[in-house]
Design a protein around this nucleic acid. Structure first.
Length: 558
RNA sequence: UGGGGUGUAGCCAAGUGGUAAGGCACCGGAUUUUGAUUCCGGCAUUCCCAGGUUCGAAUCCUGGCACCCCAGCCA
């Protein structure tokens, strides 16, 4: 499909026009600039695909840059996780791995230049005072009493800030712009703050740290970034981005363009909110298969190609983008279907006994690993008198169009025989515990000798040969299509209490028991399942990646 | 009643003055030993609303309306 409709969006058009106009003869440069304070999520995938995709398609370069200017929230754990997630998605920064912290010395020099030209000053106001003098959305702010310090005094003070002469929070370096600007970002924004904090990259070398609005444009300029792409909430910051670049002497002039961030139904795509889920132990960790993180989706069994495909399908615009889950799920199924081997597993076992099948008889039956792709070969399924079938495949009092097993009904056991239900066995409390059937010995392989039509086909495993395993079924973490909780207080009201269902007695083909973590199978008629890393030698654990499309279930619940 | 943005189908999204692509979802129907896959067909007389310009407007103009973002020494 993407062959017929190559990705086009306003940013690609902009880049194409820039190149057409002869700017960027050296080629374009983009960058993906995460802060290492959390794990990457599907929203980052959109940005990664955009930035790296642009560089790839326009013969440019894309760097991975850690925006690590705030030592109290960042860590090497996140740095490593981010790197492996970007690689997993299929992108390569080709040695262009940078850290904003690599530029701290240069950034300091740029700050000196700003002070020198009278465009920055050291302000002794407290955080509270700065806030209260900033004004409001409708009222201008008032000038800091320190705004008109001399160049020499500012220089001396800033050097002392760096030298560690002042307490945290006691002073900042501010840009000298306009306290009455209708754009709040231009009301003498803070450029540097004092923080006695060990940085994961620079250690204790610094006690002053530059702010994002100062660091970002300059990092871009240092790296020769041509197109600096970010999300819409940074739109107002662009004026400051430009101001910084226009007031210091930089090696290049990058330009910022914003696009809308991705929202996904029934999930949150915000590092802050995801961090709360992890810290409150709502989930087992950043890679919980219910998380919209790249590591969570990987563990769940989503192939990276599916995420890349998803990103090209949703496009890049400036509209509010709230995408339905079905788009993502469809991408996952589409990526998995052609290459995923089929297997039989029964997740809610119900015993089925074939009364006219000899007790001591066993046989092997050939099954296709992938109907529709013979190159994937066949495997042997063991068959005997006692089987397990899916509990959902039997109904004592079936509705109109139910063509599975029911009293007196005949169905096909896929790749095996036609069986007819003769009797239902119950336990003392009335629960159905066993189905007794007879089989047609002439129907080996599943075809009736007389050509009679049997509509229903169900899967099964041999009770004598199958292996017990665990399955984890997932639903969205939230019951609200647009969760957006603000504090942990209102978390419970939006959480889906049944987002995880653990089934610890599923029965699978013996061949599945030792599969490696990460391997994906299609359990026929049930969905795609991925071997979890929690698997042990005695018990395999399968995550349901995504179910199969199920028009029967849909027609019933609709 | 400050500034910056966004409105095309249920959800995304093309469209750049010449008569509304595509995907997902949904609804038919064919094939099927997975109620899967695949395949065919349907799904906006109208583009937030109201005026205007024009032979012709989703595209241009004017005026409204709705929603989102900004008052961190976070990014």
């Amino acid at each position: 499909m993407s062959d017929q409709h190559p990705p086009t969006n306003f940013i690609r058009q902009l880049v194409a026009a820039d190149i057409e106009a002869g700017r960027y003869r050296q080629g374009i440069t983009t960058r993906f600039p995460p802060e290492p304070n959390g794990y990457l999520h599907i929203g980052h995938a959109k940005s990664i695909c955009l930035n790296f995709g642009l560089a790839r398609d326009f013969d440019g370069h894309c760097a991975l840059r850690f925006d690590d200017t705030n030592p109290d929230r960042e860590s090497p754990e996140f740095v490593e996780a981010i790197k492996s997630d970007v690689r997993w998605l299929g992108f390569d920064w080709e040695g262009r791995l940078h850290h904003a912290s690599d530029y701290f010395e240069q950034l300091y020099e740029f700050a000196i230049e700003l002070i020198d030209s009278g465009n920055a000053y050291v302000c002794d106001l407290s955080p509270d005072e700065i806030r209260s003098t900033r004004g409001t959305l409708t009222e201008p702010g008032v000038n800091s009493p320190f705004r008109d310090r001399s160049r020499e005094e500012n220089l001396a003070l800033f050097k002392k800030m760096r030298a560690g002469a002042f307490a945290e929070g006691s002073r900042v370096l501010r840009a000298r712009i306009d306290m009455a600007s209708p754009n709040l970002h231009l009301r003498d924004p803070t450029l540097y703050r004092i923080r006695y904090q060990t940085h994961h990259n620079t250690g204790d070398h610094w006690c002053i740290y530059p702010m994002y609005d100062f660091t970002h444009p300059l990092s871009d300029a240092i790296e020769g970034v041509t197109h600096s792409l970010c999300t819409l909430e940074f739109e107002d910051n662009r004026a400051l981005y430009d101001w910084v670049l226009e007031h210091v002497t930089t090696p290049s002039r990058p330009y910022q363009t914003e696009f809308s961030r991705l929202s996904l139904e029934y999930t949150v795509v915000s590092k802050r909110l995801l961090t709360i889920l992890v810290e409150q132990k709502v989930v087992s960790g950043w890679d919980d298969p219910r998380m919209p993180t790249l590591s969570g989706m990987r563990r769940r069994g989503y192939p990276p190609e599916a995420l890349v495909d998803f990103c090209t399908r949703i496009g890049v615009t400036r509209n509010h983008q709230n995408v339905e889950l079905s788009v993502l799920e469809n991408c996952v199924r589409e990526a998995l279907d052609p290459r995923t081997p089929r297997a039989f597993a029964v997740i809610r076992p119900l015993k089925l006994v074939i009364e006219n099948y000899p007790e001591d008889q066993e046989e092997d039956l050939a099954a296709l690993n992938h109907p529709g792709d013979e190159s994937q070969g066949t495997r042997q399924l063991s068959f005997c008198r006692e089987l397990y079938i899916e509990h959902d495949d039997f109904l004592e009092d079936p509705p109109k169009k139910f063509f599975r097993l029911a009293p007196g009904r005949e169905v096909r056991l896929r790749y095996a025989y036609l069986v007819t239900c003769r009797e239902v066995v119950r336990d003392a409390s009335g629960n159905i515990v066993e189905i007794r059937c007879t089989y047609d010995p002439q129907s080996r392989g599943g075809n009736a000798p007389d050509g009679r039509k049997v509509k229903g086909t169900i899967h099964w495993v041999s009770a004598r040969h199958s292996v017990r395993a665990e399955a984890r079924l997932y639903q969205p973490l939230f019951s609200d299509p647009e969760p957006g909780f603000s504090s942990d207080g209102d978390l419970d009201s939006v959480l889906n209490a049944t987002s995880l269902t653990t089934l610890d007695d599923i029965q699978v083909e013996p061949g599945l028991a030792q599969a490696k973590p990460g391997t994906v199978f299609q359990f026929e008629r049930l969905g795609y399942f991925c071997v979890d890393r929690d698997s042990t030698n005695s018990m395999a654990v399968f995550n349901r990646t995504v179910g199969l499309r199920d028009s029967w279930a849909r027609s019933r619940s609709g």
